[in-house]
Nucleic acid binder design. Structure first.
Length: 314
DNA sequence: ATCCCGAGGT
DNA sequence: ACCTCGGGAT
């Protein structure tokens, strides 16, 4: 690599040098516009509604969030309405709709307050500003900027990584994925492009690919389609959920959403059948769970009067 | 068992 | 770089 080609974009090139970018872009956009899953959040450009859908979709299958998204929008129609809600209401909603990861409910509520207080209730349009919102990282910032304002950079999620890794043999490396995604995206078309490339990963270039069935528009360029090697980048494996700490955290939050407040032992007996106050899974164990939940801002623990009372925070 | 349009804290 | 965070669908 010489200095002659100078610019960072050339130095970062991670796509095949002879790739016909215009043809690749046109093929994908045409494929997406011809047919795609009609998710309701794809029919709005309201940044608040987009934001809600993106937070819900983190680590959760899209089919499972459709009704939750519709209920959420009905209950808190605007970012101002959400900011006015109590955190405990939002957390209970989250659990009632089986969305998991209650922290995301807290983040969303916090972010709504930021939008109201820092931006007068009007979402900023720049990814850098959006990323300052609680719970909004690089992916969500660019997704909201793209789908609400057509003003995002290329998103990089597990779909984009898998698709570019297979199709264009992009190395399994964060910087390479970022560069490849950025090179691929046509200027000023982040809305349709980011939707389209994630749709490709979600429908055609799945873990077990459906190239022909889904009519993948990239077959003629695809390295994996040519070689038959559909290896995908490693995704960190999840610890098993059954019996995990997460499972009991979830039960605690669910119960506290149903009962205004509970004392320690009652709560313990209700979240696990083998709860024994002085046993292995007893008060000490439960206090550990509650301590984490309190640090996460999800529950409040009151130790006054010689008894321990627990409730949802906010 | 494995997967899912990530992010924050350490 | 590593860990943690829910739960339904398949």
């Amino acid at each position: 690599m010489t200095d002659a080609d100078g610019g960072a974009s050339a130095a970062d090139a991670s796509l095949p040098p002879d790739l016909d970018l215009d043809a690749v872009r046109e093929a994908l956009i045409e494929w997406y516009e011809a047919d795609h899953r009609p998710f309701p959040w794809r029919q709005t450009d309201d940044p608040y509604e987009i934001h809600v859908s993106e937070v819900m979709s983190q680590q959760t299958q899209l089919d499972r969030i459709i009704s939750a998204w519709e209920d959420f929008r009905e209950r808190w129609p605007t970012v101002d309405a959400l900011a006015d809600a109590d955190r405990s209401e939002v957390v209970s909603f989250w659990t009632d709709h089986s969305l998991g990861y209650n922290n995301r409910a807290k983040y969303l509520h916090e972010a709504a307050n930021q939008v109201v207080e820092e931006y007068g209730g009007e979402y900023p349009e720049e990814p850098d500003e959006l990323e300052e919102l609680m719970g909004v990282g690089p992916y969500t910032a660019n997704a909201v900027a793209s789908f609400a304002f057509n003003n995002g950079n290329a998103v990089v999620d597990t779909n984009v990584e898998r698709v570019t890794y297979r199709a264009f043999d992009v190395p399994d490396d964060d910087a390479a994925f970022e560069a490849a995604a950025s090179e691929l995206m046509p200027e000023g078309e982040s809305r349709v492009w980011n939707n389209a490339i994630m749709e490709l990963g979600g429908v055609a270039c799945t873990k077990s690919p459906n190239c022909d069935e889904a009519g993948c528009p990239w077959r003629r360029w695809c390295h994996a389609y040519e070689t038959g090697d559909f290896t995908a980048p490693d995704v960190p494996e999840q610890p098993s959920f059954e019996g995990s700490r997460r499972q009991f955290r979830g039960r605690v939050v669910r119960l506290l959403g149903e009962h205004d407040e509970m004392d320690l032992d009652t709560l313990g007996h209700r979240i696990r059948i083998d709860y024994a106050p002085d046993g292995e899974h007893g008060r000490e164990w439960l206090r550990g769970i509650l301590s984490d939940l309190r640090n996460d801002g999800l529950v409040a623990v009151d130790e006054s009067g010689g008894e321990t009372t627990v409730r949802l925070q906010g």
